[in-house]
């Protein structure tokens, strides 16, 4: 038998209760982003209809829903990436710390620096590992020793440093898929964003690489606000504090069906539509 003292046992008990996942959001958590009555159009096609949700600071919020229901479109409205596609229109508002990012006088470049994005397929630049991470800070005028420090710190924060520290000048494209994705995370956090958007960041990765990204997200949530779109419901259940379920309404516009604590969504959702989706009895 393993000998443990009462206080050790209590410690084990308390850790088991607090756990590292899933994260609970308390009432006093500050709202980082607020989405209100958001509509998004591609030409005449309304892809998002009437989405309202508050995203708490320093936490992970997951968005789930079937393919084509508008998850990526919604995520892209959070840092105005949707603007990059022609003939699009946004109605409603998205605020960051209370300021509407769609206001006329807002600097879009600054918005995208404060709200970074990691994509489905790892997309490192065809440059060295160092230059990939240094890219953003260089644009901001950082150089020399300071730049080296930022690169090292970002790679450490992305849990990649130990694997690449001896080959910083090799191409980022020579890394494995999972390493490339962590490189993209390092590149994103190198410019010190406040929010990180992730669009199915693990869908091209094997299970081990996936768990590494999840562990990384759990580390990062202490300092960043993270919103993740995922097809993997177990992943949403493992990492997020809140989960949003989206579905398509009859005219194919994406709507927010249910948004609440992850534990509740996955054990006892309030809406039948959510239940049908997460138990796989959909359509």
């Amino acid at each position: 038998m393993l000998e443990t003292t009462q206080s050790e046992r209590l410690g084990i008990f308390t850790r088991a209760l607090s756990g590292n996942t899933p994260q609970e959001t308390s009432a006093d958590t500050k709202t980082k982003m607020r989405v209100q009555n958001l509509d998004f159009y591609y030409g005449n096609f309304r892809a998002i209809a009437g989405v309202t949700m508050d995203i708490p600071e320093k936490s992970i919020t997951a968005i789930i829903g079937s393919s084509g229901c508008g998850k990526s479109t919604l995520l892209r409205t959070f840092n105005r990436m949707g603007d990059l596609v022609g003939h699009t229109r946004v109605r409603g508002s998205v605020t960051l710390d209370g300021e509407n990012i769609y206001d006329r006088n807002v600097d879009v470049v600054l918005v995208r620096r404060r709200i970074g994005m990691v994509f489905q397929r790892p997309n490192p630049f065809p440059k060295s590992i160092f230059d990939n991470v240094a890219y953003g800070p260089r644009l901001l005028g950082v150089g020399g020793k300071a730049l080296e420090q930022i690169v090292e710190q970002s790679l450490r924060d992305a849990a990649l440093w130990d694997e690449v520290k001896d080959k910083l000048h090799q191409s980022g494209l020579a890394l494995s898929g999972g390493q490339q994705q962590r490189l993209c995370v390092a590149r994103t956090i190198a410019v010190k964003p406040e929010v990180i958007l992730m669009d199915e960041p693990c869908s091209a990765l094997d299970p081990i690489a996936t768990y590494k990204i999840e562990e990384l997200m759990i580390q990062l949530r202490n300092e960043y606000t993270i919103v993740i779109v995922t097809h993997n419901m177990q992943q949403a259940a493992r990492v997020s504090g809140l989960t949003a379920f989206m579905n398509m309404n009859p005219d194919r516009a994406g709507v927010l069906v249910e948004f609440g604590p992850t534990t509740q969504i996955f054990t006892n959702p309030a809406k039948k539509e959510t239940e049908d989706y997460i138990t796989g009895r959909f359509g």
Binding site: M233, A237, F266, T267, E275, I278, T279
Partner: peptide
């Protein structure tokens, strides 16, 4: 099967 919600319960 990774059951969820009412299936899990």
């Amino acid at each position: 099967q990774q059951p969820l919600a009412s299936d899990l319960r």
